[in-house]
Design a protein around this nucleic acid. Structure first.
Length: 124
DNA sequence: AACCTGACTTCGG
DNA sequence: TCCGAAGCCAGGT
């Protein structure tokens, strides 16, 4: 979906907080996702300045969602589906998203084209 | 203090 | 087209 080679896109949060550690930037990116929209792990990683750090984003969510009060439920995988195992919050996350007006299709998938939080960033 | 692991993605064989 | 493996980072053990 997004230009994997677009350097202007990657690092927008980094530019805003150049001295903050990766984790901090990821948290900032997650917090900026508005209610009723979703973002993928890679989107967050991209905005945090590390396009390939999707995995770390997942880790951070797992470890910090409680303390930082993050809208963790708005983060989903690139297929538009919930990655959380059903035994570990899948249903809860789905409920939270539905409560924000997000719709799931028959395959429990979210239409990223409609709900994905992807601010347009013009090339610099 | 070193090593392991994870709610992921993407690229190469 | 399908499967294996690397890339990325930091808290836990």
């Amino acid at each position: 979906m997004v230009a994997s080679q677009d350097h202007g896109l990657a690092g927008i949060i980094l530019k805003q907080n150049p001295r903050q550690p990766f984790t901090r930037r990821v948290i900032a990116a997650i917090k900026s996702v508005p209610r009723g929209r979703v973002a993928t792990y890679s989107d967050i990683a991209l905005y945090a300045g590390s396009p390939r750090a999707a995995r770390q984003v997942a880790w951070i969510l797992h470890a910090m969602s409680g303390k930082e009060k993050l809208p963790w439920h708005r983060i989903i995988n690139s297929w538009g589906k919930i990655s959380l195992p059903k035994a570990a919050g899948y249903e809860e996350q789905k409920e939270l998203l539905i409560a924000e007006g997000i719709v799931f299709n028959q395959e429990d998938m979210i239409d990223l084209k409609q709900y994905s939080w992807m601010p347009k960033i013009k090339k610099s």
